[in-house]
Amino acid sequence: MSLEKCKKQLETILAGCEGKRESLLPCLHAACEQCGHVSEEVISYLAEKLDLPRVEVYSAASFYSMFSLEEMGKNVIRVCVSLSCYLKGSNKVIKALENELSITAGQTTPDKKFTIEPVSCLGLCDKAPAMMVNEEVYGDLTAAKIKDIINQYRQKEAK
């Protein structure tokens, strides 16, 4: 299923590059963009096309933090836990998100709508503590602000 979603993209990248190890990272990026994660199916497909052992594709996908091996929620909340945000209370941000969504950091809600992912510096130190929801940036976060933000996304989902 997840392979169907990204197969076209992968085929474009792989055109003329079959069996070339260096095509692996662009393919993993494409898979993540199209279906949110790198599935077992996608790994097997890429291993065959690039003539690599599956465990090597798995190894690469697990090494880089921008690739996810697990299915992500529709809205991925990336909370910065690097130094500036940490000093300004990123742990409180995570706590608030966990309370609001009833999951722990790193997990996805059962309805597959939200994933909380602690990440390294987002380059938003001036607005610490900061987070991103999908491509949107949010700074100077407080528990109250987080409630509002999550509600906005919930309403969007409800429409």
Partner: peptide, 20 residues
């Protein structure tokens, strides 16, 4: 020429593992 194992994950969590 088998390739049954590789490093998985990174940093302090790195392990030598089989596919998945």
């Amino acid at each position: 020429a088998v390739g049954a194992i590789d490093f998985v994950d990174r940093g302090g969590r790195t392990q030598v593992l089989t596919f998945l």
